[in-house]
Design a protein around this nucleic acid. Sequence first.
DNA 1: GCCGTTTTCGGCCCGACTGTTTTCAGTCG
Length: 579
Amino acid sequence: MLTNAQIAATLEQVADLLEFQGANAFRVRAYRNAARVIRNLTHEVARLVAEAPHTLAEIDGIGTAVAEKCVTLVQTGRLPQLEALLDEIPESVLTLLRIPGVGPRKAAVLYRELGVATLDQLRAACEAQQVRALKGFGAKTEQAILDGLPVAEAAGQRVYWAEAEPLVAQLRDHLQACAAVDQLEFAGSYRRGKETVGDLDALVVSTAPHEVMEHLASSRLVAETLARGDTKMSVRLATGLQVDLRVVPPASFGAALQYFTGSKEHNVALRSRAKQRGLKINEYGVYRTVEGAEQYVAGATEEDVYGCLGLPVFPPELREARQEFHWADAGQLPELVVERDVRGDLHMHTTATDGVDSLPDMVAAAQRRGWEYVAITDHSQRVTMARGLDPHRLLAQWREIDALQAQAPAGFRILKGIEVDILEKGGLDLPDDVLAQADWVVASIHYGQRQPRAQITARIVQALANPHVSAIAHPTGRLLLRRDPYDVDVTAMLQAAKEYGKCLELNANPMRLDLDDVDCAAARELGVPIVICTDAHSVEGLDVMRYGVLQARRAGLTAADVANTRSWSQLRQLLGRAE
DNA sequence: GCCGTTTTCGGCCCGACTGTTTTCAGTCG
């Protein structure tokens, strides 16, 4: 069964190839738009195809044509249109698009005129000086392509949000030391809190743009300047990350911040709305045309810009053209969860298994953070690499917890927990009579991750059915930028969690952030509580809670949607158990 | 290819920068 992500990727590929062919740009956009809509859906297209195929075209952004293609794709696993396109254009030409400055038009000329279909062939063509002879190309373009080849080869290089964070802090310090900088904000996907970041967008208010640009270029972090104009500059950091700087006047700061925060799709939707109301929005402000002349209406703050359209300032995390405009229209913009709402952490490790800090140290660190409770959840015996706990060692740890609890300040609770493995053949790694004595049980998969969908889904659903299990940890097993999720049927998992009254984890580790934002939104819709947990293996590991909260915000979660914003006794009640 | 409180046809967000151009196309965000 095809997942929404797979269907979306197929439509994206069709869009790429159509664009390469020089197809109508709006047709290409329609495919990309449909891909985005499907990727963000909180229910599965494959299920709709099976149960109510005629409702597909009712989804905003999906018309009869794409709906039909989805049906074909889901039912046959193939898309004839895509196969026809791939007959005409080798898939490898799409790698040419990764070169900065090479888009579909130039790539098409390279392929058509020189037969270039791979990066290696392109390098050879450039070195033979064949590229500069092409119409629309020249010596500079040829050199730019040669310079850009390493970028393309290392392509798609995004960094974890958590990696971008210290770079932003350093750049912020550096830029704020410049006297010409009046206001500064980092926009883009960083401000939206996306789990990975492809570049950084710095926005500055200044009356002396060139001074600001000189100052940025002087940073130790900057390796090279890629482009520089009067208001805009691009540099590449030594780490490889690109930084785009825009300098704007004060009256435009809000409009520019709104614009450069994006997402692109959110902006397209916003500008369409503006247009419907006779307004125009660009990065300088909101304008109304009066008797042929453009009049500035607003732009100094984001409040002003959104306010012109009767809209609230959307939290940046929601600006993905998903539900935010519908929520705003209905006056139901969720009040997103914040880190101080979180009252405890329910997944962490100690030196008993693969943690590096002791049980007392982890507990003390949690207390210092102001949390009211923690669950100690070391690995179970199956995870031999981590010296997982057998019943004997686990019970010994729980006695240690009892002793610690006796000395703990009033109101602080140390929960006896375990991260119990879901075994390859199904079933849990510890007997029920042991699990029954735990306060909190997270079940997770570490082995048999490559099993087929039905098998791995059945394992998880079975774990959720176990009365002693409280939550599933890192429910899809993905590692950002490194490993795809395993082939679990997320909808079935959510429904099982709903049926058995269990929680699903949003693992806050910045390399996991699992469940992802779309699946967390689906959990919210279904009323399945999310627990945001650090999965800390050290005292410092507890710091990642904020990344999990950021991801929850992207999903539109409120404090009420997150179970560990409750007190422990309230959380127990939520799970239907008496204290 | 999608969509409809001007529309079932004719629109579809908008501007900066670069390089190759004699006035603009392509790319990018």
